[in-house]
Amino acid sequence: EINATPKGWSCHWDRDHRRYFYVNEQSGESQWEFPDGEEEEEES
């Protein structure tokens, strides 16, 4: 699962919740759901 993350994302293990979470390396935002690989940036 770690190697399957889309480009620009990293996968980390949360010991407290015993599950993986994903970090967007560009924005620093994290989420529980597996990233779909589409950038959802809304910068103007």
Rank of each mutant, 00 (worst) to 15 (best):
E1A: 09
E1D: 09
E1G: 04
I2R: 12
I2P: 10
N3E: 15
N3A: 08
N3S: 11
A4N: 15
A4P: 15
T5L: 15
T5A: 05
T5M: 11
T5G: 05
T5S: 01
T5F: 06
T5C: 14
K7Y: 04
K7G: 02
K7Q: 10
K7H: 15
G8Q: 02
G8C: 04
G8W: 01
W9G: 04
W9D: 01
W9F: 08
W9C: 02
W9T: 03
W9R: 00
W9Y: 03
S10Q: 08
S10K: 08
S10D: 04
C11V: 07
H12A: 03
H12T: 04
H12R: 08
W13R: 01
W13A: 02
W13I: 00
W13V: 02
W13L: 04
W13N: 02
W13F: 10
D14C: 05
D14I: 01
D14T: 01
D14M: 01
D14E: 01
D14Q: 01
R15K: 15
R15E: 15
R15N: 11
R15D: 12
R15M: 08
R15P: 09
R15I: 15
R15A: 11
D16Q: 10
D16G: 07
D16R: 06
D16E: 11
H17A: 14
H17M: 07
H17L: 13
R18Q: 13
R18E: 15
R18N: 15
R18H: 10
R18C: 08
R18A: 13
R19G: 03
R19D: 02
R19Y: 00
R19S: 05
R19Q: 10
R19E: 04
Y20S: 05
F21M: 11
F21R: 15
F21H: 05
F21Q: 07
F21S: 08
F21K: 11
F21G: 05
F21E: 09
Y22M: 03
Y22V: 01
V23D: 03
V23Q: 08
V23L: 12
V23C: 01
N24L: 00
N24K: 07
N24Y: 00
E25V: 08
Q26C: 15
Q26L: 09
S27V: 00
S27Q: 02
S27W: 00
G28R: 04
G28W: 00
G28C: 02
G28D: 01
E29H: 12
E29A: 11
E29K: 13
E29P: 00
E29S: 12
E29C: 02
E29N: 04
E29R: 11
S30I: 14
S30A: 13
S30W: 13
Q31S: 06
Q31C: 09
Q31L: 05
W32Q: 07
W32T: 09
W32R: 05
E33C: 05
E33S: 08
E33L: 04
E33Q: 12
F34D: 07
F34C: 12
F34H: 12
F34T: 13
F34S: 06
F34P: 14
F34N: 02
P35I: 05
P35Y: 00
P35V: 02
P35H: 05
P35R: 01
D36L: 08
D36Q: 11
G37E: 10
G37P: 12
G37D: 07
G37Q: 10
E38S: 14
E38A: 13
E38L: 11
E38F: 07
E38K: 12
E38M: 14
E38C: 11
E38V: 13
E39F: 09
E39A: 14
E39H: 13
E39C: 14
E39M: 10
E39K: 14
E40A: 14
E40Q: 12
E40Y: 15
E40V: 14
E40S: 12
E40C: 14
E40R: 12
E40L: 13
E41G: 14
E41R: 13
E41Y: 03
E42M: 14
E42V: 12
E42F: 05
E42R: 13
E43R: 11
E43C: 15
E43Q: 04
